[in-house]
Design a protein around this nucleic acid. Sequence first.
DNA 1: TTTAGTGCAAAAGTTTTGCATGGTC
DNA 2: GACCATGCAAAACTTTTGCACTAAA
Lengths: 156, 156
Amino acid sequence: MRMIVVRMTRYRTDMATERQPDLRALLASRGIRPTRQRLLVLGALAAEQNDATAQQMHDGLRARGETIGLATVYRTLALLSDQGVIDTLVHRPGEVCYRLCSEGHHHHLVCSQCHRVVELGECDLGSWLDDLGAAHDFSVTGYSVEVTGVCAGCTA
Amino acid sequence: MRMIVVRMTRYRTDMATERQPDLRALLASRGIRPTRQRLLVLGALAAEQNDATAQQMHDGLRARGETIGLATVYRTLALLSDQGVIDTLVHRPGEVCYRLCSEGHHHHLVCSQCHRVVELGECDLGSWLDDLGAAHDFSVTGYSVEVTGVCAGCTA
DNA sequence: TTTAGTGCAAAAGTTTTGCATGGTC
DNA sequence: GACCATGCAAAACTTTTGCACTAAA
């Protein structure tokens, strides 16, 4: 019998209640200067239940009266994504979303209706991947699994 | 012991040598009118080893002396994608690629250097997915696995 | 004070759309 | 003939970039 371990790493609400110092530390740990704007973007992602596009985040921050340029949001998201601080999700072509995720290798379960995102642990594809590489003469460097469904809230 | 079946469905070269009538039939089977332009786009995809963006296909066709508008390429790709005739792959944000794939559920193994694409069969995640749905109160509607690696040609 | 980050506006791309024209059934 | 598809050009968007200015180390 094969064991499958589904391991929830962290719920969104945990991040939402994290304190500013934690966000500073997160940036510091990657050698990223903790500027006001970067903390704003990171804070917005931390408070975000789901994922968000650059434009959505910019709109949200501006609506709250914060001052930040759209270009800065893009630059910050690119930086954070490069550094592995946030994940990039592409649900539909032309719709690039970002999300503050737990660290380490994981996958996503996304509600196709409300875009709610649940992080998933390992998916036990190890030996399948090994076989793949051998069969096609590829050296496999990574993989991603995106599971789509409808969450309980949206079913009701 | 767990069996993993890796099943190559069809190589690109098979498609490349397919005859025009097959493409017409493919369109007819979905109730899509076989216009000159649609056959052009489909033919280009059939001849394409890897995947291609709308712009790349338009450039390629124009370079060959074919007359077709860029908007038509976009419209045709959207139509074919909606009808499930072709697959949509998003390698990087803002880079939407299309590919004429075999039918049925499958996944992709993509070379990160040359964009060569190999189709993969089932990946045996069935019971993992069942557990997921139950654990998070989602009704799982689909999933995709994209494996990235470096192919033998690019390693050398 | 030296280096890095930001804002703004312009530019560069990609994709969509309106509408007159031409092709298919 | 009725309806659908196409081409072109314009529009709508998204994302990137140049450059002067400001903030952080």
